[in-house]
Write a protein that binds this DNA or RNA. Structure first.
Lengths: 244, 244
DNA sequence: CCAAAAGTGTTATGCTTACACCCATGC
DNA sequence: GCATGGGTGTAAGCATAACACTTTTGG
């Protein structure tokens, strides 16, 4: 390994002042932001304003600043895009094929994020500098995507499914208080298969990560008990000797 | 996102000829190479020759070339270090804290690899440019490591354990033909707990990824049947709707 | 009283675990 | 013949999966 320092170039080259002995890739983070809206699993996409892929939809993301961690970069992008903080975030995979971006070598670290319904309500979704528009798309009905973002998204969906099959973290997509039927609908939508009501309830309650609020949601018919997740639910589920 | 091109600087600055508008991190791959030697789970480390951490042991790795994929970089490093090809390789995680390398911003994509006993036998372990020495270390008895490599290694071990708990891929650490007792010893060593012989055999045979060779290994006492893994074993186990 | 969603238990099946003795060989 | 590792089966407990009816409310 050789010198890793940076040299500021003289004023005559101020347009490209960061110089290195060897060529370096650009490093970005891309965020796959899932939310559960209108009874559907949705993902946030932004429409690109510039070439390449102008007009196409893409995952939100941006360059990693030189002095911020990867996760900090992901959180920053996420907040820029939605205004929301304290989002459940998890590193997904790093995509670095040399030709994945026609402008040059760009390595992207993909993060996947789950936005609760409360957070969606508080959020103000907007495009960044490079985008005309930002909106939620149903994951089962997506437009063509820019770059290799279809592949990244497919992978994120696999991971989300795995997560819900093996952990009880589905409540991260719901509001603070929710009914078991709502939670079941989340699982059914993500896993894309129907689940047995009694078995679902037994299993999710046995996990010990939910507690009753004592309140009820009346809505036309028999009121449903409201639950919330316990303070240590996320931690507990993460620790359940699964991976990662 | 702004210009991503590269400018070759004039001859006067030929020492650092690659210039960019914004500062860029260096990107490396690090390999956690596991093998099962002398009845122990071992990992390949190289001793650093240069500062920082001169004399300390570190994971093998190196810079990602500008025109190679991340996995290709990992395979190249692996072959440089060991001379072995066709290794089982899997992306682990990307570590990118700003201060993980005192020389500057270095983001590393960690890959973990499993070397079969045959491959170990064929390999010629040697240090790279930057190393004085390379050798195998028992994972349960490691020296202090350079950078954040202890953290990376701990994570790799967690992943390996998870892999062996949930898949039958332990044979990747053994020679082409092996006995069930040898396979069990691999699992016990990696998981660091004793396993029941009968249950282990039932489970591993039920997975349908092993077949008898018809041959036996005599070694002092009652000869043991030799098994090999089937051609599609790796594929099969990967596909078993687990993650990743 | 009817529509709509909430809520609730039991049984059968398969998987996991625990556990102890005989077998084949080399010396 | 004995020491050493190879090889085998069964029973109990536990988790999963399948399955249908009653309850509560609003209109």
């Amino acid at each position: 390994m050789s010198g890793n320092g940076v040299d500021r170039a003289p004023a005559s080259r101020r347009d490209k002042p960061y110089c290195y002995e060897h060529p370096r890739p650009a490093v970005t983070v891309d965020i796959i932001l899932f939310a559960f809206l209108q009874n559907a699993l949705q993902v946030l996409l932004i429409q690109r304003r510039n070439e390449p892929f102008a007009g196409r939809w893409a995952l939100p993301g941006g360059f990693v600043q030189i002095d911020e961690s990867l996760e900090a970069a992901a959180r920053r992008e996420l907040e820029e895009e939605t205004g929301v903080q304290d989002v459940y975030l998890e590193q997904l995979y790093t995509f670095g094929d040399p030709d994945r971006d026609p402008r040059g070598r760009v390595i992207t670290v993909a993060y996947f994020a789950l936005l609760s319904a409360d957070q969606v309500a508080r959020s103000r979704v907007r495009g960044g500098d490079d985008a005309q528009a930002a909106r939620w798309w149903n994951v089962y009905d997506l437009p063509p995507l820019a770059f290799d973002h279809d592949r990244i998204l497919a992978y994120a969906l696999r991971r989300l499914r795995w997560k819900l099959e093996w952990t009880g973290l589905g409540f991260l997509l719901l509001p603070r208080e929710f009914t078991l039927s709502e939670l079941q609908r989340v699982y059914e939508t993500v896993l894309n298969e129907p689940l047995d009501k009694r078995n679902f309830r037994r299993k999710i309650l046995a996990a010990g990560i939910l507690e009753e609020t004592g309140r009820y949601r009346g809505g036309g018919h028999r009121p449903a008990r409201l639950y919330r997740f316990t303070a240590k639910a996320v931690e507990l589920e993460q620790a359940r000797r699964r991976f990662p």
